[in-house]
Design a protein around this nucleic acid. Structure first.
Lengths: 227, 227
DNA sequence: GAATGTGAAGGTTTTCACAGCA
DNA sequence: TGCTGTGAAAACCTTCACATTC
């Protein structure tokens, strides 16, 4: 699936930028723009045109010299690379503050991330309905994950129990986990774990305000790198 | 405030890792551990000991050779560097799914990020109460931000209106914004803008599952870098 | 003319390796 | 002995610059 350019290592930053390109391309597609240049993509993301071209070149030659990239086709290709051209069955564990927000997060659905199961351990929540999904008892985790072909699990439980939950998730054979608990989880080598640390960006802003505000000369490069 | 090591440029990754160290140190402090080695910190974060030492060395010499770093003191110093040794007055705009989740997010409070004001444009929400805070009308944004000494604004509104909101926020003199809307916002040079893109991590997992699952040889370096 | 695709150059970040200190 | 602090080396990522193609 990495294709053409014969197994070059793709850096994490490149993948993250693909997400950004995909979002822009979705907008351009809606605006019925047929093509887009690396220059234009770069302008919108505050990157350099060379960066955009290099990123895309890892996956093949999608553009036309003199013209640019075909919007729809490029969007489709990046979608394939990122796995957004399909539906992912997702289970959410924990319907507290954050969990409930995620159930209703439209961006997930739009990208094919389909929350199919919800779990909690609170008897008051089990059996209740969230956006059409009935909350299951965490006790049945393994069984339900397998029966529903869940491929990705989102963990939104308190930090104190996150490790136990993740252990069970791993036991059920899940290989991709997105964790919202502010804690470092241990998983086996072959499980992909990503963490969404919502404090981190605030901490960065706080750092920036203190250290960089009246001192733009040493303003950290790429403070906006991923936006 | 950058101090000692005479104005070396601090990279974004270093700052992000400081957040991680801070979290670990908080745990160690609670466990009454007096010192910690770079090796131990590295093990917990899946980094190298050299990386940890280099990161810390940018800000001074906190450790003792042969012994390691004093947990409490190091935590305090990193807290100072990140600006967590104080309270930040924060305003939240938008109490939809995500906004409501953020109001109750304990991690923010624990780190001194104090949500003091909440705004919305929905008449049904204005005047209602969220965790003890009354939702204000977005019309009074500028005035209220100034009167309450707000320093950081969190934007959690639909993508379609995010740019207008941010324009008003900037007009009110705010210099630090955290954006949850899945869209690229324009702000002046001197305003710090960070984006929390919750789909991005899921997209990364999706990418990883497709491209790296049966192919660990080319597994992307540092897939766990920030967690 | 306009814009891609890409080796090579340049810059940044990470890791190594070891001197120096408790 | 154990572990920090740090120049130097290695690895990695970004930008340059230009041949190439439409």
């Amino acid at each position: 699936m990495i294709s053409e350019s014969s197994r070059r290592r793709i850096s994490e930053s490149t993948v993250r930028r693909l997400s950004l390109y995909y979002r822009i391309l979705s907008v351009l597609e809606k605006e019925n723009q047929a093509t887009v240049s690396s220059k234009e993509l770069a302008r919108r993301e505050k990157l350099t045109p060379a960066q955009v071209r290099k990123d895309l070149s890892f996956f093949g030659s999608f553009g036309t010299r003199g013209l640019g990239y075909p919007v729809c086709e490029l969007k489709k290709r990046i979608g394939e690379i990122l796995g957004l051209n399909r539906t992912w069955n997702i289970a959410l564990i924990g319907v507290g503050n954050i969990g409930s927000a995620l159930v209703g997060y439209k961006e997930f659905q739009r990208q094919g991330f389909h929350i199919k199961l919800i779990f909690d351990n609170d008897q008051r929540k089990i059996g209740s309905n969230h956006k059409g999904i009935t909350v299951s008892d965490i006790k049945n985790l393994g069984k339900e994950l397998r029966e529903n072909n869940i491929e990705i699990v989102i963990v939104a439980v308190p930090a104190t129990v996150a490790q136990y939950i993740v252990d069970d998730v791993v036991k059920a054979g899940i290989k991709a986990i997105l964790n919202f608990a502010p804690i470092n989880l241990k998983v086996p080598e072959d499980v992909f774990l990503r963490n969404e640390n919502m404090s981190m960006e605030l901490e960065y802003l706080s750092f920036a305000r203190i250290n960089l505000y009246n001192d733009l000369g040493t303003r950290i490069r790429s403070i906006q790198l991923f936006e």
